[in-house]
Each structure stands twice: as C-alpha cells, then as structure tokens.
Design a protein around this nucleic acid. Structure first.
Lengths: 337, 337
DNA sequence: CTGAAAGCGCTTACAG
DNA sequence: CTGAAAGCGCTTACAG
C-alpha cells in the first residue's frame, strides 16, 4: 500500500520535533495548548492517520483480543461475539475471530496464529473433540491470558465462563416430569465434552429426585450430525414402551429428531414432548418444536468472559499467586408454547 | 504481555548474527543447510514464535484484510465469511471482521479503524442506508483496495461482486406467473438500496414480458423489520381482489408475512404463493415457506471478492490507469417443495 | 514547554 | 555463505 503521512512529515512542516507532534496528538499535558492546536489542525488537514502497527510494535501490545469459536454458523456463538464486542469496543480493542470448524488441527494452527500475532488476550470455545489442553498451555508460556467460554475445559486451572449446565439440565428434565412424563429419554452430546456430561448429570439428578429409575437404554450419545440423531431416534422409538419425552442436548438435535418423527412416526409427533438447551429465534416460525428450552445467554457469557479477560489484561500486578476463576451464569427454562 | 524469545536471543546463543538467524528461519537460499538446521533446532527447542507485529511494521504490510458487514446474525453473511476465509487462508492472510449493525455512524468508525490498522485490502457490504460513498473514498486516498460485495454501490468507479439481481427477480416473478398467478405483489427493500431497485426492476420486466399490467398498489417498500412487513401485508390483503402471490425481497420478509397470514388470514395461507431471495437452511423445518427462492450464493460471492482483492493486492504494477471491475454471479431458482 | 535520542524486533541491500 | 548496519513509525524517559 501507499505510504501515509507520518509524524515526521508533520514535524517537518511545522518545524517541530517528532516528539512534540506525537505528544500533541496524544494530548500530553506537558504540551502548550497552542502547539497542540497547530499540530491537530495540520493533522486534520493532511488526513493524518496514525500507523497503529507501528504503535502496537513500539508498545508491545496489539490492542487485539482473539476469539476462537467452533463455527459462526451457530447463531449462539454470534451472540457471544456481540457480547464480547460490547466490552472490547469500550476498551478500544479489536477482535480477531477464527473458526475451528470443530477440527483440532485447524484449532492448533489458529492457536499459533494468535500467538504470532501477539493478541493481548484470548477467549476460546474449544472444539467438541478437544480433550487434551496442552495445546492451550502455550498461551500460559507466552503470558497471554485465556478465558474459556461455553464449553468448559475438563481439568482445573483455567478461567472459564459458562452456564450452569447441571442445573439447566435438571430443570429441563424436571419440566417434563412435572408435565407427567415418566419415561424420559436423553439424547446427549459426545461423552468427550464436559458439558455433555454435566447435562447428563442434571438429567440423572432430576430423575433421582422424583424417584424415577434410571434406564441406560433411554440415553443415547450423538455427535450433532443429523445422521446420528436419526440413529438414536430409531433405537429409542423401537423401545417398548417408547419414551413419551426426550430431553436433548440442544435445539438442533430436537429439530432433527422431529424431522425423523415426521418421516417415520407421524402418529407419535403429538405425543412426544421435547426439551433441550438453546432458544433459536427461528422457533417463531415453527409448528413443531420443543415444549420448553433452557435459555443459554450467550451474549452474557461473551460479555462476562470479556470483562474477566480485561480485568486480567489491565491488572498490572505481578502474576505470581495467580488464581483461576470460573463463572457460571444461571439459566432458566423458557416455554416455547 | 511477557516478552518472548527474539531473533537476538537466538543469535546470541548460536554465536551468529541476527541477519543469519532471520534468513535461516525464512529459508533464504544464501544460507548453508547446516546453519539453517542449527537455527531451526534451537528455535524449536526454545519455542520461538516470530513477532508478527514487528514483521508487519517492518514490511509495511499487515497481512490482514478487513471485512465490513452489516450483521453476523444474518447467516448469509456468515457464508460470505467462509468464502473469504478460504481464499485468505491460502494467502496466509488474517481477516478482521466488523459489524456495522446497519448503522452509518458505526460504519464510519469501522472505516477509520480499518485505516488505522492498515489493512492491506477491504471487502465491504455497506449498510442499507449508505447512499453517499464519500466515506469510502478515504480508502482510495490511502491506497487500500476495496471490493464491495452483495450490496452494490450506487455509483460507478468501484469494484464489486454481487449476484445478478435483475435476473434473479425476473426468474422469481416469472416462476409465479408460470404457476398461473396474474395478481402478483412485490414487497421490496428500501428504495435507497440499489439492489432493492434492481429486484424491483426484474419484477417489472417479468410482468412486462407476460403482458401483465403493472399496478403500483401491489408494490410495498419495507425496511426489513417485522412491523413494516406486517403493515405492507395489511395493505395488500385489503386490496380487492387481493394478490394471490407475493415476490418479496428476501426470506425474512416472507417468513414475517406468513406469520401475519397465520394470525389474520388463516384461510388465505394455502392460496397465496411466495417467492423471494435467499435459501435459509432452516427451511427444512418449516411447514409454511416460499414455494421457490432465488439462491444467492454468498460463499461464492465471498470467494470471488477475495480472489479479486488479492489480484489487486498482489499486483505490483503502477496503479495508474486503474479500471474497476464488477462481477455478477448468476443465480438460480430453488424450489422449496 | 520542547527536543534529541534510544529502542521496540524484524528484514534486506550491501559489503566482505 | 555470513554479518554489520540502516531503517520501518512510533513512544517515552531524560535533558534542557
């Protein structure tokens, strides 16, 4: 690209030193009002735009935070971005986004990219297959703070912001029990995902509380593809008696399960109730949908994660005796009527 | 953040000059294989990660392209990102995303941010209210190439990649005509948007071809909010005879119109056909939807825009006698059955 | 209140 | 094949 106007150009024209020009534009109080005015006037006239990359380099700060997320096609993650943006914007920070597409190799190359670009902090939602956190240990080595979001890391020693998955799953299951269901299936996420295990735990606790015996044949684990959900439903529908309610890991699974019922068990469509996590805006347009969903406030998770991150970034104390923080946002059940 | 390992650190340890270390890591052919090996070995051992911001600064290139888009909540723009990512990734470029939220003030601050950060190029989908392009002229002044995408600028002298909106609208309207409709309404986008006018033009041409008289009472302009769509539908449904088909600017408008019919004109739900632009993946789950939609290939638009952008970025010739290029991707009608 | 000077971590033309 | 040196555009501690 063409070279822009530099401080030097301004200084030469004004017969001042580069330092004075720099300080004027940064509103340094040591500079006289008149000088500031003259500098700013010329800067405006010449359309001077500071070279941020020089500034970042000099200050050894990128004024950028990274956000690694699985996929932008998931509208919930988009909400998280908006929450992060709100906080980052106020701090005058940019956000660099990167999608892992649930691929751990891609995730690794993104991690390296973030380090090469020296982001000042990172927010990460790991892939559904990320078990081993050693990749992310790199950030600790180079001193970049990281907040995990939505999907909690399985081990301790990490900052994270998530919802209370056990509680949410308990409520979603209990909702079905209160509606009179006794035979309640659960289509859970991959067992590698800590939050899938947490939701499974909430499901069990709700059954236990109501003294409904746990039946492992009613629990199926899927990887979020339509094919796997269909397979789970085939098996569940073959049971005798078949479950009259299903609590699923998230909206997409419910919708795919309903598509399956429409195709193969039209008659059961009206007698099986679903609950799940999420609350897609598109529900408004649907005839068949979960009776109730646990609302996951992704905007708030994004906001809280960013707040926590900036607390660390702006904290100039020695990073000895560092403690890690976990924030769990409460979640409530929304009836989709 | 903590300081990382630098070339100097490596050079000192290896008793070499910084230049030699730099060249080794960059695989300069002037360096002996043995030296390269020694350097790379230590770099790996010490987890050396090049400081990109120093490199960017030195090379006066950010290896970053910007993408200004209205809103990530629009899944079509997410597809465009994926198309851009495919090309940018291959070129080893990063993408910095910024949402204008259809707000021209926000758009202005994003433009300035992009210039301050010295992006090497920009892809932009302007807000629906952006009439005046002087804001974007700044990029020309500083020599940053820009490709407009999806929403074409109203004046000439800009590079853009879009679909053939007139053709698509013609096909969508003609589809309804061929299905036997004679009284076809059009809910168009804001008249400030060139592509809304283009789609309106396609609608008129289709009517003309089939010798159906144009009736301006059948055309309503909306700003994409549910409220405006409802208002447009109220007026259309009061006409006598009411239209038996509606061609709308995009999916969201159709869905809101259908919600309105469900509420107020349940009986007409099955006798009014819709066509529109877009093809939301969520259609799969819907009972009521447009009979056919013009598929807008946003992934391809993103890809083409990025290809065009890199052609300009990587072109080292003098930028005298610059010509501007417009790419219109053909679009086809998808039947939603 | 202003300026001279150092330096952030790289790359590269040039000399040897 | 290797190295010394300049310089990218800023900020800032220090001197005056």
């Amino acid at each position: 690209m063409k070279k822009g106007i530099t401080l030097k150009d301004l200084a030469k024209k004004l017969n001042m030193s580069v330092s004075t020009v720099s300080k004027s534009l940064n509103n340094d109080q040591a500079i006289s009002p008149l000088t500031k005015e003259r500098v700013k006037e010329l800067a405006a006239k010449w359309n001077y735009v500071a070279n941020e990359s020089a500034r970042h380099f000099k200050l050894n700060k990128s004024f950028t935070i990274g956000f690694i997320l699985p996929d932008l096609r998931d509208p919930f993650f988009v909400e998280a971005i908006n929450g992060i943006e709100e906080v980052a914007g106020a701090e005058k920070y940019n956000i660099i986004l990167a999608q892992s597409h649930e691929n751990t190799c891609k995730e690794e190359s993104i991690v390296n990219m973030m380090i090469r670009n020296r982001v000042d902090g990172l927010i990460a939602a790991v892939t559904k297959n990320t078990i081993d956190m050693t990749l992310f240990e790199k950030f600790r080595t180079v001193g970049i703070p990281v907040i995990y979001i939505v999907r909690e890391p399985r081990n301790d020693g990490f900052n994270y912001v998530s919802i209370n998955n056990v509680e949410g799953a308990f409520k979603a299951t209990d909702f079905l029990i209160k509606k009179g269901h006794r035979r309640i299936a659960h289509i859970m996420g991959p067992r590698t995902m800590p939050i899938a295990m947490a939701r499974f735990e909430g499901y069990r606790q709700a059954l236990l509380k109501s003294k409904i015996p746990f039946d492992e044949k009613l629990v199926k684990s899927v990887d979020f593809t339509e094919k796997e959900t269909e397979k789970a439903m085939v098996e569940l529908m073959k049971l005798d008696p078949f479950p009259t309610a299903v609590f699923t890991f998230k909206n997409d699974i419910t919708l795919d399960a309903i598509v399956f019922l429409k195709k193969k068990y039209k008659a059961r469509l009206d007698c099986i109730d679903f609950t799940d996590f999420g609350n897609l805006p598109v529900f408004k347009y649907l005839e068949y949908k979960p009776v109730a969903s646990v609302k996951e406030d992704f905007f708030e998770m994004g906001r809280q994660a960013a707040l926590l991150l900036f607390e660390i970034i702006n904290d100039n104390r020695q990073d000895t005796e560092k403690t890690f923080r976990g924030v769990k946002i409460p979640c409530k059940v929304i009836i989709n009527r």
